[in-house]
Simulated assay, not measured.
Amino acid sequence: MRGVKIVEIRNSQSAQMHTLEAIMAATIMVVIILFAVQATSLTPLTSSTANAHIESQMYMMGQDMLTALDYAPHGQSSALKDAIINWNGEPYVWNGTNYQSDYNKNNSLNGPIVDMLELVVVKNGIAHNVEFTYSTVSEFDGYSEYQQKLDNYYIYNGDPSDNAVIISRKVLLSDSDVKTTTKIPDIDDTTALYNIVDVKLTLWRM
């Protein structure tokens, strides 16, 4: 019986030692993981939590801006659609006072889009570009047609930084929407569809 008790004690001590070793190993692994995470967060090439939060805020702000500009009461066109239809193809640049045409310095941009940009992004020191992407129809060999996409700056304020955010919104144009001469072409004169314009808003911190 005494021998049995000695064996039980030794087995118990061995089990306790294995348990202790497992706890120590787990503790060491946790310490290593914590050290690795802290070292990674200090690496200059890693985006900080603060930058990610700012980018997220800018993205949501850009979404809200395009949503508000694309809203229209029943039977009316939105400010965004009107800006697209009335666009003459010129890129505009913020000169510190207004959006001035890059082709003709006497032309300046105005309207709800300008008011929104000045109120939300210009006053907060946020650089921005606005692009219009739309389809064109070209004739090939006189009988077959094909479409190609064109990217044109509506507002250009320089090349975006690596932390820029891009928000896009598609605007459908029908024949009934276009009542004046516009830079946007009609891609299908056999239907009521005029064109689809992808509005891309790029925001970044200066």
Rank of each mutant, 00 (worst) to 15 (best):
G3F: 01
V4R: 08
K5Y: 09
I6Y: 12
V7W: 03
R10Q: 11
Q13S: 08
A15R: 13
Q16L: 15
M17H: 12
T19K: 14
A22T: 14
I23K: 14
I23P: 02
M24F: 09
T27D: 14
T27G: 13
T27K: 09
T27C: 09
V30G: 05
V31L: 07
I32D: 05
I33A: 14
L34Q: 10
A36Q: 13
V37Y: 11
V37G: 03
A39N: 15
T40G: 07
S41Q: 15
T43R: 08
T43M: 14
P44E: 13
L45Q: 12
S47N: 06
S47C: 00
S48Y: 04
A50C: 02
A50W: 02
H53S: 11
E55V: 06
S56H: 09
S56M: 10
M58N: 06
M58L: 15
M60A: 13
M60T: 12
M65Y: 04
T67Q: 09
A68I: 02
L69P: 01
D70V: 06
D70E: 07
D70P: 05
P73C: 04
P73G: 03
P73W: 03
G75E: 09
Q76P: 02
S77I: 01
L80I: 03
K81M: 06
D82E: 15
I85L: 06
N86W: 08
N86V: 02
N88I: 12
N88S: 11
E90M: 08
E90R: 06
Y92W: 08
Y92G: 01
Y92M: 07
Y92Q: 03
V93F: 05
V93L: 07
W94Q: 03
W94A: 03
G96W: 10
Y99F: 15
Q100V: 14
Q100A: 05
S101R: 09
Y103M: 08
N104S: 08
K105C: 04
N106E: 15
N107D: 14
L109T: 08
L109A: 03
N110D: 15
P112E: 06
P112K: 03
I113S: 03
V114M: 04
V114K: 07
D115W: 02
M116V: 06
M116T: 12
M116N: 10
M116C: 07
E118M: 11
E118I: 06
L119S: 13
V120T: 08
V120Y: 06
V121C: 07
K123P: 01
K123T: 10
G125W: 04
I126Y: 05
A127S: 13
H128W: 05
N129R: 07
T133S: 14
T133F: 09
V137R: 11
S138K: 07
S138W: 01
F140R: 15
D141E: 15
D141P: 05
G142R: 09
G142V: 08
Y143N: 15
Y146I: 11
Q148W: 06
Q148M: 10
K149G: 10
D151Y: 07
N152E: 10
Y154M: 01
Y154G: 00
I155N: 02
Y156G: 01
N163F: 07
N163C: 07
V165A: 01
I166E: 11
S168M: 10
S168N: 12
R169V: 08
K170E: 15
V171R: 03
L172Y: 15
L173T: 09
S174V: 13
T181S: 14
I184Y: 00
P185C: 03
D189C: 05
N195F: 04
N195A: 04
I196C: 05
V197R: 01
V197I: 09
D198H: 00
D198Q: 06
W204D: 00
